[in-house]
Computed example of a mutant assay.
Amino acid sequence: MAGKMLRNRRKAAGLTQKQLGDLIPLSQAMIAGIELGNEVPGAENAQLIDDAVGADGELAAAWHHVRKDIQQHSAYPIWSHGYLSAEVEATRIQHFANIAPGLVQTEDYARAIISEGVKLFGGDVEEKVEARMERQGILTGDDPPWFWSIMDEAALYRVVGGHDVMCGQLTHLLDLAERSRTTFRILPFNRQIPGGVTSIGALLLLTRPGKNEAVYWESGINGAFLEAPNEVAVYRAFYDHLELDVLTPQVSRDLILKAREEHHAHCTHH
């Protein structure tokens, strides 16, 4: 998109690729690559190109978003990239996991989980934390998706990052539960996960306008993004059965509060 815009602006300015490159300076091959979408200029060169073709900041802004998207995707495994693109389109996100979902994790909670993952799989902790925090913006916009999360009761008690971190995370869940489009429900210990499943990483079902329902699942070491109706149907049936055994939002809220006050009683976030 930005490449095509550049080509149109360059031609309107009466410049060849070489002439534009000489103004920056960049090689003609680089300008050609940028126009084809195979190359993305850095912030400084993006602004110089924008000025040279009189784009009034439009091109620089477009490339800024492209670089941001690339950076965010690089912080996540390849199998999740389809999900990340679909997440921003979703009007409803349904979630199930045994930890707090990424979209509502506090920075401290996310850092504790990501730090442990980096020990095994590598990567930059702060880059991954920043990417996760930026994703959360979809829940705070003018028209956020409906976000319905089911958490295994273990998520309330397993200590991630220490009791202070847990207290902050559970407090955050309680605050978010006040929003009209965000709901948390707990699958209690005394109820079984459907289908004979004994554990699961994370499962998300996405409703998107004009598209098939999609599924994303991950276990920490692998995952998949699925759109084929026959594959999605299996996970939809699993989630529908799961909903039959979860606690109501109000009872779930009371349990989250109880876990915070009793299990993480020494925290400093009261």
Results as ranks from 00 to 15, higher is better:
residue 1 M to S: 12
residue 6 L to N: 01
residue 8 N to A: 14
residue 10 R to V: 13
residue 11 K to E: 15
residue 14 G to K: 11
residue 20 L to C: 08
residue 20 L to V: 05
residue 22 D to A: 11
residue 25 P to H: 09
residue 27 S to A: 12
residue 27 S to V: 12
residue 30 M to L: 10
residue 31 I to K: 04
residue 32 A to R: 03
residue 35 E to D: 12
residue 44 E to K: 11
residue 45 N to L: 04
residue 46 A to T: 06
residue 50 D to T: 00
residue 50 D to F: 00
residue 54 G to Y: 05
residue 57 G to M: 02
residue 58 E to N: 06
residue 60 A to I: 00
residue 63 W to E: 00
residue 67 R to H: 03
residue 70 I to R: 15
residue 71 Q to W: 12
residue 75 A to W: 04
residue 81 H to Q: 11
residue 82 G to E: 11
residue 83 Y to P: 06
residue 87 E to W: 02
residue 90 A to L: 01
residue 91 T to W: 04
residue 92 R to G: 05
residue 94 Q to V: 04
residue 95 H to L: 09
residue 98 N to A: 14
residue 99 I to Q: 14
residue 100 A to F: 02
residue 108 D to L: 05
residue 111 R to C: 04
residue 114 I to T: 03
residue 116 E to P: 01
residue 116 E to M: 13
residue 120 L to T: 14
residue 126 E to A: 02
residue 134 E to C: 00
residue 136 Q to L: 03
residue 138 I to L: 10
residue 141 G to M: 00
residue 141 G to E: 06
residue 143 D to R: 12
residue 144 P to A: 04
residue 145 P to M: 03
residue 147 F to K: 03
residue 148 W to C: 03
residue 149 S to Q: 06
residue 153 E to D: 13
residue 156 L to Q: 05
residue 156 L to N: 02
residue 157 Y to T: 13
residue 157 Y to D: 12
residue 158 R to M: 05
residue 159 V to Y: 07
residue 162 G to N: 13
residue 166 M to A: 01
residue 176 L to K: 09
residue 177 A to R: 03
residue 179 R to T: 11
residue 182 T to V: 15
residue 185 R to F: 09
residue 185 R to E: 15
residue 186 I to V: 15
residue 191 R to S: 11
residue 202 A to W: 02
residue 205 L to Q: 08
residue 206 L to C: 06
residue 211 K to G: 02
residue 220 G to T: 12
residue 221 I to Q: 11
residue 227 E to T: 14
residue 228 A to V: 06
residue 229 P to G: 09
residue 231 E to Y: 05
residue 235 Y to H: 13
residue 238 F to P: 01
residue 242 L to G: 03
residue 242 L to V: 03
residue 244 L to P: 00
residue 246 V to D: 12
residue 246 V to M: 07
residue 251 V to F: 09
residue 256 I to E: 10
residue 258 K to M: 04
residue 258 K to Q: 12
residue 258 K to N: 14
residue 259 A to V: 07
residue 263 H to I: 14
residue 265 A to R: 11
residue 268 T to Y: 01
residue 268 T to H: 13
residue 269 H to L: 09
residue 270 H to Y: 07
residue 270 H to T: 10
